[in-house]
């Protein structure tokens, strides 16, 4: 197996990347240009690993190269090895609940383990003596065999909320919820419909949005909630969102008040396998924010999901109880740590 490590900031798109992403039906965040923008605007930029076996791509991975200490600086372009201590986080920014490594469809466990080992050896060669280890997160329970082994501790991660679409309409879905949740959602829908002060717009490939405003809004929301555990991402950038929301497979829902102020925004990544409710941000109530918008976004997402017949929808991590009340199941996710001595084994 041959591993090609690509710095998306400066290297061209690897041959076969787009075809692999399309064949595996991966989410838009795997688009090379989005990864390029994300890496340029990151403190911990991604290094992409492409594993080939006889010219065919067998696995792709995004390894965030994280340095210690975390500083308030973007990563220096062109930096090759880790002089200071650091680690590689096999992690996909802005798609929580999904792994940062994807294998070719139909490949067996042995092939996947071989690909994982090849990636680790390539990272050791590329990142040099400062590489302390590799972190895989999240890892599905059925894939643990690929990543675990002697000297590779497993830790728990926040569970991912996934909804299996078994309905043909929103009313069907509402009917499956608890009486209390169903009543509150219906009441909220009535209240919002009667509120002339909230302007709601949604749809794919939005070109009417100010990405800078969106980025500022999303970051303000994230700051208000406080830092996430093991957060290695840099705030989402305007350039990234600008490209993301213009894609035909990205649906963006916005709520504005009568003065045109943004009240809430939600991006949903459409996908034939599993739609993903991605960024959610809302104005604080103290700053003129409105109630019920979070749940309204779910009702609208379910309207799309049931109409388009998407089999699954993921809404990432956090707020487990609320998501369960909306019909989501919590899927266990793990984190596997591979310290330097066991890399490549």
């Amino acid at each position: 197996m041959i591993v090609e490590l690509v710095d998306p900031r400066t290297d061209p798109e690897p041959e076969g990347w787009t075809a692999f992403v399309a064949a595996r039906q991966l989410h838009p965040v795997w688009e090379f240009d989005l990864l390029r923008i994300e890496s340029w605007l990151a403190r911990n930029p991604a290094l992409l690993a492409v594993v080939r076996d006889g010219g065919t791509i067998t696995a792709v991975a995004t390894a965030l190269v994280c340095r210690l200490p975390l500083t308030a600086r973007f990563a220096r372009p062109g930096s090759r090895s880790l002089v200071r201590p650091g680690w590689a986080d096999i992690y996909l920014p802005w798609l929580s609940g999904f792994p940062g490594i994807e294998f070719a469809a139909g490949s067996d466990v042995d092939t996947r383990v071989a690909a994982r080992r090849a990636v680790e050896r390539a990272l050791v060669r590329r990142l040099g003596p400062g590489l302390l280890g590799v972190v895989y997160r999240p890892v599905r329970p059925d894939e643990l065999d690929i990543f675990t082994g002697r000297g590779r501790p497993i830790r728990s991660c926040m569970p991912a909320a996934v909804l299996r679409n078994e309905w043909t309409s929103v009313d069907d879905w509402l009917g499956s919820l608890s009486r209390e949740r169903r009543k509150s959602l219906r009441r909220q829908q009535r209240d919002l419909a009667a509120d002339r002060g909230v302007v709601t717009r949604g749809g794919p490939a939005r070109t009417d949005l100010d990405a800078s405003e969106l980025a500022t809004f999303v970051e303000a929301h994230r700051r208000r909630l406080g830092p996430l555990p093991r957060e290695v991402r840099t705030p989402v950038s305007a350039a990234y969102l600008d490209r993301l929301v213009r894609r035909p497979d990205v649906h963006t829902l916005t709520y504005h008040d009568e003065d045109g102020r943004l009240l809430a925004v939600n991006t949903m990544l459409d996908n034939p396998v599993c739609a993903v409710k991605q960024h959610w941000a809302a104005r604080a109530r103290a700053d003129g924010g409105r109630r019920h918008l979070y749940f309204d976004a779910y009702v609208r997402a379910m309207r799309y999901l049931t109409g388009a017949g998407r089999p699954l929808m993921s809404s990432g991590t956090g707020l487990e109880a609320v998501k369960q009340s909306l019909g989501f199941d919590l899927h266990v996710r793990h984190m596997v740590l591979a310290p330097r001595p066991v890399l490549g084994r």
């Binding site: 900031r9 923008i37 340029w40 600086r73 973007f74 705030p235 950038s237 350039a239």
Partner: peptide, 14 residues
Amino acid sequence: AFATVPFYREHWAL
């Protein structure tokens, strides 16, 4: 500015 400020990083890198 290129190393620390989002706008200039975005504008000059891309």
